[in-house]
Simulated assay, not measured.
Amino acid sequence: MNGAQLSELPDNSEQLLPFVVSLRRAAQQADQRCSIWTFSDGFLIKFLRARDFDVALSLKLLLNYLQWRRASPEISSCLSPSSVLGLLRALYHAVLPHRDHVGSRVLIYRISQWNPKEWSVFQVFRVSLMTSEIICMETETQRRGLKTIFDLKGWSLSHALQINPSLAKKISSILSDSFPLKVKEIHLVNEPMLFRPVFAMIRPFLPDKIKQRVHMHGTDFHNSLSDFFLPRVLPPEYGGEGLGIEEACQDWTHRLLQSEDILKRIAEHPVGDIYTGPCDSSVTEDVDSEQRSKR
């Protein structure tokens, strides 16, 4: 079976076990610090699915994930939604209730709702990491990945001054090859001239495959976004027919707050491995989009 076929199997499939055992053994051999931990099967399967069950690539991803957690305690040691509740309530971020046509999660970040005088770039980035930790527990998201829309309306010099080359490298490395999620597409809308120097700092650190997945739409984005997303997926504010962006932000804020205990456990665990399998009631799979549409 190829990687895509393996990814479709449930976590408890016997056919996945050899890959899990190989990745666990490789991690313990590659990093002595890994030998003191017993990685759960579910935790390792996240990394295997993110790299289509290529053990070598999954190992690299896992080691990168462990490295950034150690190197960035200012971000990884606090994953509390309550600590950034004001930013969330400002309707900065949403994970849309409907997946796209291939099953990918769709995320939206609204820069105009981020006030740099109140919230540092580390706190803003923490929001992204909290969401990433939650959705990478979803089996369907492990298989289908995610697509992100960054709405850069309101981007100003005060935003740009928060990001230096060192931070740009750290952010890009975490997003591109240090987290067990497949980034399928990145869409930029309302991008102003002031954003170009920042993107120029980030771009060199992105792998070529990610660079090819970045799409810039400008201010006339309603029609061009429809080339990538069905109308039922996007909020009306982005040319779709789905849930309004404010309600979508509120719903996801509620989801993060419900996940406070899970995120606390992830932050406190040495490697973030709290996975106990699909029967763990504290790790809930996302509701089917068709069920959500009927509410």
Rank of each mutant, 00 (worst) to 15 (best):
H98Q: 15
R110S: 01
S112D: 01
F125P: 03
S82C: 13
A94E: 02
H98S: 09
F122I: 11
R89I: 08
V124Q: 03
S104Q: 07
L79H: 01
K117Y: 07
N115V: 04
L88I: 13
R110G: 02
S156F: 11
N115K: 07
L152D: 03
T139Q: 12
L88D: 05
L146F: 06
P81E: 07
L152H: 04
T139D: 15
L87G: 05
R105P: 04
E140F: 03
Q113F: 02
E133C: 13
T148K: 04
V127P: 01
P116I: 03
L91F: 11
L152K: 04
S104R: 06
S77V: 11
V102G: 08
A90N: 13
T141S: 02
Y92A: 10
K117R: 08
L129Q: 00
I134R: 03
C78P: 07
S128K: 11
L107W: 12
T139N: 11
C78R: 13
L87H: 03
S158C: 04
T139E: 13
L152F: 11
I149M: 10
H98K: 12
H98R: 14
Y92I: 08
F150W: 14
R105F: 01
K147E: 15
S156C: 06
P116A: 05
S104D: 08
Q123R: 08
M137E: 13
W114S: 02
R126A: 08
V84C: 05
Q142H: 11
L157W: 12
P81Q: 09
D100F: 01
D100I: 01
S80M: 09
S83R: 04
